[in-house]
Structure formats: structure tokens, C-alpha cells
Design a binder for these strands. Structure first.
Length: 408
DNA sequence: GCCATGCAATCAACGCCGGC
DNA sequence: GCCGGCGTTGATTGCATGGC
């Protein structure tokens, strides 16, 4: 804030805030800050980090830009004419440069208004230049403010940061129709958006749900297993709905009385009827299960279905019985060195998650007990059918970080 | 036992979005 | 611009709990 330590109480009358247009600007150690709204201005402070060389004209273009003091400083300086000339040269800006400046200003404004993480801002600016280069000259979408708004939305989605389209539209120069129209035009030039890993994004949401309600990790594991198994059936909707669907199925089948669907939907900002619709059409209709009444009243049927496909344990499941009879002998070797470590170790307890050749999610629980000069360990592996099996340790490569193991 | 209250669940109607 | 599918809204009902 402008009133914080290190601020100098001088008004820079020639500077205005990017956000609120206030002239109440102060200089701090970090830069110029608006005292009205607390926003740091995009204009940089005068920096003296360019060494003087006799060979170069210091006002020559191409040297880069900096602030030539404030207006008052230039006027009161004994070499004011010289400074004025330097400032004039410095203020010269090409069209593309002006466009980037406008885009940066707009992106900063949106980030401030929506309180978005600042570290993503530079990514948006970077994408702006790249995408704009592909757009036909003299087209509407090349407008820096409009393109910036759309790119903020797309980059945040790519980075798995929650953002509401409506909220962005409200805080931009675009209308809802314009946003959708331009969005489709930009999409081909940002292949990362279409190719983003939605499963990673949804998994993150599932973890957030688990943590929010203070549930144990098995809730997250089961919800994620449901996500992987039913992905093809449920993927044609928004990330929030898919996350809500998987969490709700988990709650209805294995956490009755612990967590209800309503609170999950409330957390995600979706309606329960949307989940009900998904369960009815994507599960009951797709898998031809008869007898759907309502989401909650059909939870028994849903639970039976989950048991049948092996997602949750069930004593009376024919499928599960058959699977239990068949030992998990298909796995000949698993190289955990290639697996992703999903959680930080707590007391040398590691949980790995990876996908086998059949596309099945497998969780490996590894406990390592420190002893003098040696490390003892036990290992269990859980396939997605809920079957736990002990594995024989083949090799162990001790290291300080996560264990690098090979099992046979 | 009755009633009030609050939360969860249901359901029909509405409206938005995206494909054509 | 039209139209169908899908998600949201909001009124209503059901149920559990607590106070009297």
C-alpha cells in the first residue's frame, strides 16, 4: 500500500492510476503506487542501471526505455532542455509497442479487479503477442482490450485456475455474445487450451473438496478412480460438473451421512439438479440401468453399479468375486521411478499413483522405516478394484528424496 | 405431542449456449 | 437466426431437530 514503510510522500501530479485515474500517486521502493486504490502502476521508476558509454547516443532509439524523471524534476533541472528532449525521444512509441502497453494495462486491471495470482500475468502478456501475430490486420479481435480479456480467461483455464466466464465478461469491454464469438476465433491459435489436461484440473478440484470437508484421502482416491473409469461417459460437460459428479457419487456410495451432495454442489457453485441430470443420463441411461428415481433415492442402485464395475468393494458382487479369484499376476514389473509422487512424505510414508498398461489407476503405498545405516520398507499396491496385494521388493535405490524403486 | 425452524432434496419451467 | 440440449432457478416438499 502507498502508506506503507518506505513510501515517500510526494505527489506525482503528472502520473495517474491505471485503474482509478487518481493523481494521488506516491513513490515506494517497489515503484509508483496509487494511494486511492493501492494499485502499483505499470510505469516503471527511473533506473540508473545502464552504464554510460561514449560510443552510444543516450537518447538513441533501441537502447530501451526508462522514466526520465518526473515532469517537475525535468523542469527544475539545470539541464531541463536536454531532459525534455530525452523524454520526448523516450515517449516515442510504435504502434505495436502501444498495443502491448494497452494490453498490459488491461491485463493488470483485470487481474487487480478479479484478484488473480500475479505470477500468471506475464504468461497472458506472452500469449497476447503470440496470438495477435496470427490475427488478420484490421480485424476487431486485434483490439488489445478485447483480446486481453479472452486470453486472461484461456490462460487461467490452462493453468487450472478457477475463473468464471460471466465474471470476466462483466469486467471487460466484451459482451457475452462477443466473448463467445471471439473465443472461437482465438481458440485455433492457442492449442494448449484445447489440449489442456482436464483430468488434472478436475483432480485438483476433487482434492480441494476432500480438504474443504476435512475428509480422509480414501475419499479423494475413490472419487479419482470414478473419474478415470467414467471419464469417457462424463467428459462432455464442464470441469465443475464432472468434479461434482465424481464427488457426489463417492459421497452417495461410500460416505452416506458423512457428506451430502448439496454441500458439494454449494462448494462448487453448481446446482444439485445438474448432478442429478448427469447421473441419470450419463450413468443410468448410458449403462442401461433401470429404476432411476432421483439422485438420492437411487443411491442404492448407484452403489450396486459401482460394486459391479469394481470401483468399490462389495461382498455380493459376482464381478468382484470373479476378480478376486483371479490373482493380480498381470503386473510383471512396475518401475516406480517413472511414477508420479502425489504427496509429500509424512514420516517416510509415500503414496504413488500411476496408470498401468490397461489404463487402470494403481495406487502404491510405501512405508519406509529409518533404522541405523539402513532403511526398512513395506509395500502394498492397490489396483482400482480395491484389492490390496503385497509385492516383492526387487531393487531399492536409496536417495534423500522420494524413493526410486523397481519391483518385480 | 405439537409446532417452528433450518437444511436437504425434488421438480417443473426457464433461459443460455453452441451447433448448424 | 433457429433450435435442441443442457444447466440453472426458484418454489415446493420432506425430514430432522429442538423448544415448549
Amino acid at each position: 500500500m502507498a502508506t506503507g514503510k518506505g513510501s515517500i510522500s510526494v505527489n506525482y501530479l503528472n502520473l495517474t492510476c491505471d485503474l482509478c485515474n487518481s493523481n494521488d500517486i506516491v513513490e515506494t521502493i517497489q515503484g509508483y503506487v496509487c494511494r486511492a486504490c493501492g494499485v502499483e502502476l505499470t510505469i516503471q521508476k527511473l533506473r540508473y542501471d545502464r552504464p554510460y558509454t561514449e560510443d552510444a547516443m543516450q537518447y538513441a532509439r533501441g537502447l530501451g526505455k526508462t522514466q526520465i524523471g518526473t515532469k517537475r524534476e525535468r523542469l527544475t533541472s539545470p539541464v531541463s532542455r536536454s531532459l525534455k528532449r530525452l523524454s520526448w525521444h523516450n515517449s516515442k512509441m510504435g504502434n505495436e509497442e502501444a498495443v502491448i502497453f494497452r494490453a498490459e494495462r488491461e491485463i493488470s486491471r483485470i487481474f487487480e479487479v478479479l484478484d488473480l495470482p500475479r505470477n500468471v500475468k506475464s504468461l497472458v502478456v506472452d500469449k497476447f503477442s503470440k496470438v495477435r501475430a496470427h490475427l488478420q490486420p484490421r480485424t476487431r479481435l486485434r483490439n488489445p482490450e478485447k483480446l486481453s480479456a479472452i486470453l486472461v480467461y484461456m490462460v487461467l483455464k490452462i493453468e487450472n485456475i478457477a475463473v468464471l466466464r460471466s465474471e470476466l465478461v462483466e469486467n471487460s469491454e466484451l459482451t457475452s455474445e462477443g466473448f463467445n464469438r471471439f473465443f472461437m476465433q482465438v481458440r485455433p491459435f492457442l492449442p494448449e487450451y484445447s489440449g489442456r489436461d482436464r483430468i488434472v484440473s478436475i483432480s485438483q478440484k476433487l482434492l480441494e473438496i476432500t480438504e474443504h470437508f476435512g475428509l480422509e484421502m480414501p475419499f479423494y482416491f475413490l472419487a479419482k478412480k470414478i473419474l478415470h473409469r467414467l471419464w469417457d461417459a462424463v467428459k462432455n460437460t464442464t470441469d465443475n460438473i464432472v468434479a461434482g459428479l465424481c464427488a457426489s457419487i463417492t459421497a452417495l456410495c461410500s460416505y452416506k451421512g458423512v457428506i451430502n451432495v448439496s454441500s458439494i454442489c454449494k462448494l462448487l457453485g453448481i446446482k444439485m439438479s445438474a448432478i442429478q441430470f448427469q447421473v441419470q443420463t450419463r450413468i443410468f441411461k448410458t449403462f442401461r440401468i433401470e429404476g432411476f428415481k432421483t439422485l438420492v433415492r437411487s443411491s442404492d442402485l448407484l452403489e450396486r453399479f459401482m460394486k459391479k464395475i469394481g470401483l468399490i468393494e462389495g461382498e455380493d458382487s459376482e464381478v468382484n468375486e470373479a476378480l478376486q479369484e483371479e490373482p493380480v499376476s498381470n503386473i510383471v514389473q512396475v518401475q516406480l521411478g517413472n511414477a508420479q509422487q502425489t504427496f509429500n512424505p509424512v514420516d517416510d510414508h509415500y503414496i504413488f499413483e500411476f496408470i498401468d498398461d490397461f489404463g487402470t489407476v494403481v495406487y502404491a503405498y510405501l512405508e519406509v522405516h529409518n533404522q541405523i545405516n539402513t532403511r526398512k520398507f513395506s509395500m502394498q499396491m492397490q489396483k482400482d478394484l480395491g484389492v490390496l496385494c503385497d509385492l516383492t521388493l526387487g531393487e531399492y535405490f536409496p536417495s534423500k528424496g522420494p524413493p526410486m524403486l523397481a519391483y518385480t
